[in-house]
């Protein structure tokens, strides 16, 4: 494997990382919004959120990615591969993040919320000043765990030609007729990426308490 090949793998890693980070940045707040809709039992929107979560949790990332990339243009929304990739990861991870946020909200102390009410705090104010500062701490370890899963499922975006790590490895393998070395290097890159997130999860667990599961 040449140095250039290695560079293009690193470039693939850059794509994986930036697309994943974008998915996280959008998917975490989107998940919170869905969780709040369900927690507050907003009419019409809460059941919609429930269906969304159930549907998205059983949809393979690959299928979702193909759906977004090929179907959106048909209904008049032009979308490039990279945006479709970010959209895929965002919509997918948001469903799982919603469940994490929601279980945090359900376990939140009712006493504190009642106390805030008696001090005359409005609903949104209670959420901003009382609930959220505690909620994100309890949810963080599980959210980081979900980020690890997102990194692993980000390979799905290769299906629409985004040159992330696996795609780069395959291309180098096809050019050199020797697929094994680039794949092993790619595997190594994934291990490093996942270990960084597992380390981050352990760290957040130590600081903020325990998550439901490991990577």
């Amino acid at each position: 494997m040449t140095f250039n090949a290695f560079l293009s793998l690193l470039h693939g890693a850059g794509v994986t990382i930036s697309v994943s980070l974008a998915g996280i940045a959008l998917g975490v707040p989107f998940g919170l919004a869905l969780a709040l809709l369900r927690w507050q039992r907003v009419p019409l929107l809460a059941p919609l959120a429930t269906v969304y979560v159930s549907l998205l949790r059983s949809t393979p990332a690959v299928t979702l990615c193909l759906l977004i990339f090929f179907a959106l243009p048909v209904i008049g929304i032009e979308i490039d591969a990279l945006s479709a990739a970010v959209a895929t990861l965002t919509l997918n991870t948001a469903a799982f993040n919603c469940e994490i946020w929601r279980s945090g909200l359900m376990n939140f102390s009712r006493d504190q919320i009642e106390a805030a009410r008696t001090f005359g705090m409005s609903g949104p104010l209670t959420f901003r000043r009382i609930i959220f500062p505690q909620l994100w701490r309890t949810c963080l370890p599980s959210l980081v765990n979900e980020m690890t899963l997102l990194i692993k499922s980000s390979t799905a975006i290769a299906v629409i030609g985004v040159a992330e790590i696996t795609r780069a490895a395959i291309r180098i393998g096809a050019q050199t007729y020797d697929p094994l070395p680039p794949m092993l290097v790619a595997t190594g890159i994934y291990i490093v990426l996942v270990l960084v997130f597992v380390g981050l999860q352990r760290f957040t667990e130590r600081v903020y308490g325990h998550a439901g599961g490991a990577a």
Binding site: I151, T155, A158, I165, T166, M183, T187, V194
Partner: peptide
């Protein structure tokens, strides 16, 4: 640590 697609490849 390894994505499923990577193992498939």
């Amino acid at each position: 640590c390894v994505p499923f697609l990577m193992l498939t490849y």
